[in-house]
Amino acid sequence: MTVLSKEEILRRLFTSNTQEKLVITPLISKSQVSAGSVDLRLGTEFIITKRTKYSLLDPAQQNIEAEIAQYQEKIHVPFREKLILRPNQLILGSTLEYIKLPEDLMGYVIGRSSWGRLGLIIATATLVSPGYAGVLTLELVNLGEADIALYPAARIAQLVLHRVTGGESSYLKKPLPKYAGATGPEFSKLHKDEEWRILSGDPQSL
């Protein structure tokens, strides 16, 4: 798997060939594209944890969806305002940009080192599947000692793109995939994986 160069990323962004077209919208400035990656900005929606409502998160549990909704909450931080991330706090954010990958590309999201040096860790689940369409959910954790201010539309992450060779594995070929067309950070849908019925000993699946 080769990493796409700046020239190839730009070619993919502006090509009229729909099979090869890479969409990152809005790409405010071409300077977001650098050697081997594209800078992505922080969106305005976040999912925060309600610390007083901690609960056991057991993906095999039947009412896990309600449990997740009980202890997490979606909030919106308007453009030109900020969100404070406390030390050791985990929140879910998303990229401002909506991404659509062609079927021959996949990507990894990584943090920008300048944020990492402040203690901000970005995207612990980084794989972006070929054919994916939507914003990218970012898991943001402050591992530093001081509070960090996060501003919507600030450049926060980088998308590294790879070419996939051999076979087709488009994300959108499945009916309504779990996170397809996401427009903001999404609550975990881990419980929708088939294996939990087996792992939890559900007799219907045996």
């Binding site: 919208t25 539309a153 067309g181 903001g184």
Partner: peptide, 16 residues
């Protein structure tokens, strides 16, 4: 959701 997202993106894009 795509319409709401587009409205927000258009406004932030213009501001930037």
């Amino acid at each position: 959701a795509l319409i709401e997202k587009a409205i927000e993106l258009s406004i932030i894009h213009k501001s930037l």
